[in-house]
């Protein structure tokens, strides 16, 4: 196994010793061609802006190598985006972290102060983008975006060796994929890589800022169809409850999903909401003075048992329905007469 040690800096100087040790050819202070005895492929390094540099690697190894990065005094965060379709290992503090899209964990953020070892797999294409970012730049960002989550976020805990270890989000994945097809020797490559790097960082910060905001989302379509069933319920208060399977069919979803979304949306189950609305209607009917007895009211509302109705009514209003009943008067004629006068 070949061992290579190196260090990082924002400026391209570090590549000289690295290329020399590996036996690779350094072109234009940017591209290192990996020597034939190790494998084939390239790395590409460039400064994006003051404070941000990017290293792009794309190679297939024939013999196993261990690339050890020595800690250095440069205050840097290293964003390692790994798009290889197999597992690579990053060893920090004697713990191996598996990285690659295959593992669903493609993004690691490492502090430049910690020593780390990168062990790419042999025989498969390794594709990774490493962003070297000046700590000051990100600290500034964190300061200008104070939010309570930062206490829990891994990135603000300086003692941990690995700040962030997660999957790469889809947008970034597409960005990195789009470089894959370009040749490093193409002269439009540099500005493309710079663009990708900045967008990656933008994506990351965006995600980092909104990391806590992820919630169980209900789509507008679902809300709309559930609201439709609710309106249906309210329009049919005089009928018996139409059953959840019927309603869920109307909303075009499974009964369990329907119940879940209904509850999220209206903070009540369909049946309960229906009964509550029915009781409010009952209350109105009782006080309207159009009915002689309670039985008349409950028949109107499609109840067959008075005791059941009474118990439900009591549950909601803590009163008996009989107390609220305003009986229908017989001397209707007198009333009409008086109103006529």
């Amino acid at each position: 196994m070949k061992r290579i040690t190196h260090f990082y800096s924002l400026t391209p100087e570090w590549q000289h010793s690295f290329a020399k040790e590996m036996g690779g050819e350094l072109i234009d202070n940017k591209i290192i061609v990996i020597p034939e005895d190790i494998g084939h492929g390239y790395s590409y390094f460039t400064q994006v802006t003051p404070g941000i540099s990017v290293l792009y690697v794309d190679f297939v190894l024939d013999t196993p190598i261990k690339i050890t990065r020595q800690k250095s005094d440069n205050e840097l965060y290293i964003f390692h985006f790994d798009m290889s379709e197999h597992v690579n290992l990053i060893r920090i503090n004697k713990i191996d972290y598996r990285i690659g899209t295959h593992e669903d964990l493609g993004l690691a953020i490492i502090d430049n102060k910690m020593k780390s070892t990168f062990k790419p797999a042999v025989g498969d294409r390794t594709l990774a983008v490493r962003l070297l970012v000046d700590k000051k730049l990100l600290d500034e960002f964190i300061k200008t975006h104070p939010s309570e989550e930062h206490g829990n976020r891994k990135i603000s805990v300086p003692k941990k060796s690995l700040y962030y270890y997660d999957h790469i989000d889809s947008h970034s994945m597409l960005l990195i994929r789009s470089i894959k097809d370009r040749s490093v020797f193409d002269s439009s490559f540099e500005s493309y890589l710079k663009g990708i790097s900045l967008r990656l960082l933008g994506n990351f910060l965006d995600r980092y800022e909104h990391s806590q905001a992820v919630k169980d989302e209900i789509t507008d379509v679902e809300i709309e169809s559930v609201t439709k069933t609710q309106t249906y319920l309210l329009d049919n208060l005089y009928n018996p409850f139409p059953s959840v399977p019927f309603l869920s069919k109307m909303a075009g979803m499974s009964p369990s999903k329907y119940k879940m979304i209904f509850k999220k949306q209206f903070h009540n189950t369909p049946k309960n909401l229906f009964i509550e609305e029915k009781m409010i209607l009952a209350n109105r009917l009782l006080q309207s003075g159009d009915y002689k007895t309670l039985t008349e009211v409950i028949y109107e509302l499609n109840y067959s048992k008075l005791s059941y109705f009474c118990s439900k009514y009591y549950e909601l209003f803590h009163r008996k329905p009989a107390d609220d009943l305003v009986k229908k008067k017989y001397n209707q004629k007198c009333i009409t007469k008086s109103t006529l006068q």
Binding site: D186, S188, Y192, K194, L205
Partner: peptide, 24 residues
């Protein structure tokens, strides 16, 4: 904001790269 700045600068570089590529 800083996120937009990153994205804008990134976009600018990508566009330049695309244009140069098209030229060649």
């Amino acid at each position: 904001g800083p996120i937009f700045d990153f994205n804008l600068a990134g976009t600018v570089h990508l566009l330049i790269s695309n244009y140069l590529r098209k030229l060649s």
